[in-house]
Design a protein around this nucleic acid. Structure first.
Lengths: 338, 338
DNA sequence: GCTTCTATGCAAATCGTTTTGCCTAATGGG
DNA sequence: CCCATTAGGCAAAACGATTTGCATAGAAGC
């Protein structure tokens, strides 16, 4: 109709300009059928000239694919949006965005609360859930909408949902064994109270570990939302009640920060009198004083695998993936020589 | 056609079930025209029952709105994806996602390189650029596609593009003045070499400041991609060449980290012999030893304003916004008493 | 009784692609 | 020389909503 003056040019504008049918233009771009190379070139040139870009919405409607996947976490986005736990999620987000892009997908960040009955008006081809909890409302939400789901970290109680197993059990074992090797004989654990697989498995690994060593097991479950603060308070109490503790396994990096603060306040040297390790090797671990021993989970790889998994899922095949075994990164906080 | 068995129910399935026309169903939901309250209720109930959710793609096609906005930064996503500068961008992303959601929009993260000729196949109603550079390719990219743009931090050389002015000049003045008040007489500056407004204005403010004090002006422009590492090396060199330096203004937090490391290596006490301040109050500043004086830019507010601005822009009205004046956060790294 | 509203609802056009089925001309094998 | 095949292209039917222009019916005004 209106050529170019207003509005973006459509495929039929381009077809008209090139003197061919819209069908031919479509085929020229998609390559689903053969079109004369010369015609194709003419179309391409003309397309650039008039600034034609196919409408993603029309394409989406027709093909049933939006070309957009979502990344969601029920970790309290807002609460954690202070620069606390954000790191983990955002590092995944960044990597996932990259992976998605290379596959010509866009990555949408969606906050945890499915309160807004629809997430924007946007439709997603699929969604990646980060460390969902047992009975996570997000799972229900997307299942009801028949949106394909994959998860980073298995979904507790839902072995049917494809997931990248991030080896939380092995991660915990790695850290606990390391502490023992460094000479710790009385290791406490600070573990999140949510029912995420990482916390569940951390706890299981810890229980198993202390059982096999016939130790006491001062384990505390902490509300993740309260982060560093609660870990600080509880560590103070813990060390006070149980001065023999010489190692702390913090399942969340914010907890480790709190523990370090508490140790300092009580005049315990780290790692001299108290060794502290944590799972996620984020900024916190690296910048802490002393720097914290942690594990490299290979997050970019995990994110990449999740995207891959989701794509497969969208195409109808479900499968599970087990991530590479995490690698211990030993730093000052747990070194044997103080 | 196929009722319920496979595929998601469409509006016409619902209409059929309710014994009305699709028009009526549409109106019942949108409220664009009056429909009998009883009919509406019946439709609603039935909708829940058969699990009807309007197709976002169809809606998008018809209405021209995808309900999705994008957040893009030409800061090297991948390079910075190590947990370095990610903080700034991601803190904005998190806040923007929240703001977007409350307006029923989804927020897409898109990596910097417009190399993939299309960003996924996704269409955005608009895009928020974070601290774009002069002649940023992203600007060209979206302008060509007639996608509304707003920017966080003005776009150098493009006063016509709506932006949230993040007051980089005032931020720099605040920090420099503070250093002077703490007794510094020879302040060096570490500034990013990209042409982002924040760096440009930091430099201008610094030049002005040293000129008015008739001081020397050891300013170094550093490649932001090299982050902490290059700042470390250059600070070493700087302090060696110019031992009288007693203050460092780092325009990027990673630079500050590098400077701290360099100072420690040279045995300069911070803040005793050398005071260090930086702009962005992220994890780095907070967890650094000693903690760094920085400014609170009120990022969540800025993100919120950017989303608001973009919405206005999409509706056709352009305007500029000036963010609240940042607030100095004094920490140990610049205290007068070492 | 006749016009004029108002309330309610429907049919059909539209958004911009992709995809299917069909058509024509040219090519090649026999 | 005829038939089968292929290359190149077109028209039209989806995709699933929104929106516009009628239609019908009862109510109200005169």
């Amino acid at each position: 109709m209106n050529e170019g003056i207003l509005g973006k040019p459509t495929i039929s504008d381009l077809a008209k300009a090139a003197g061919v049918s819209v069908t031919t233009v479509s085929h020229a771009f998609s390559g689903r059928r053969h079109v004369d190379p010369e015609t194709r070139k003419r179309i391409q040139t003309l397309a650039d000239q008039i600034g034609y870009h196919p409408s993603s919405m029309a394409r989406a409607l027709r093909s049933g694919r939006t070309g957009t996947i979502a990344l969601a976490s029920s970790m309290p986005f807002a609460v954690a949006a202070g620069p606390s736990r954000l790191g983990f999620l955002m590092e995944i987000a960044a990597s996932a965005a990259m992976s998605a892009l290379t596959r010509d997908l866009a990555l949408c960040l969606i906050p945890p609360h499915p309160s807004a009955q629809s997430y924007g008006s946007a439709g997603f081809d699929g969604v990646i859930l980060v460390e969902p909890m047992r009975d996570d409302p997000l799972v229900a939400h997307f299942e009801q909408r028949k949106t394909p789901i994959v998860s980073i970290g298995t979904v507790p109680g839902r072995p049917d949902i494809p997931a990248v197993d991030i080896r939380s059990r092995e991660t915990a074992q790695l850290l606990l064994t390391h502490l023992a090797e460094q000479g710790c004989r009385q290791i406490a654990a600070l573990i999140g109270s949510t029912s995420r697989t990482s916390q569940i498995e951390s706890e299981a690994a810890y229980d198993e570990f202390v059982a096999s060593h016939q130790w006491l097991s001062p384990m505390i479950r902490l509300n993740e939302d309260e982060g560093e603060e609660i870990a600080y308070r509880e560590t103070l109490r813990l060390l006070h009640a149980n001065p023999a503790i010489d190692g702390i396994f913090a399942a969340i990096d914010a907890f480790a920060s709190g523990a370090v603060r508490a140790a300092r306040e009580l005049g315990r040297t780290v790692p001299g009198q108290l060794r502290i390790v944590t799972r996620y090797d984020g900024l916190r671990a690296k910048l802490s004083q002393p720097p914290l021993t942690a594990v490299d989970l290979y997050l970019p790889t995990i994110a990449e695998e999740a995207v891959h998994l989701l794509l497969d899922r969208i195409d109808g095949n479900s499968r599970m993936v087990t991530a590479e075994l995490p690698k211990l990164i030993v730093r000052q906080s747990s070194e044997a020589t103080g």
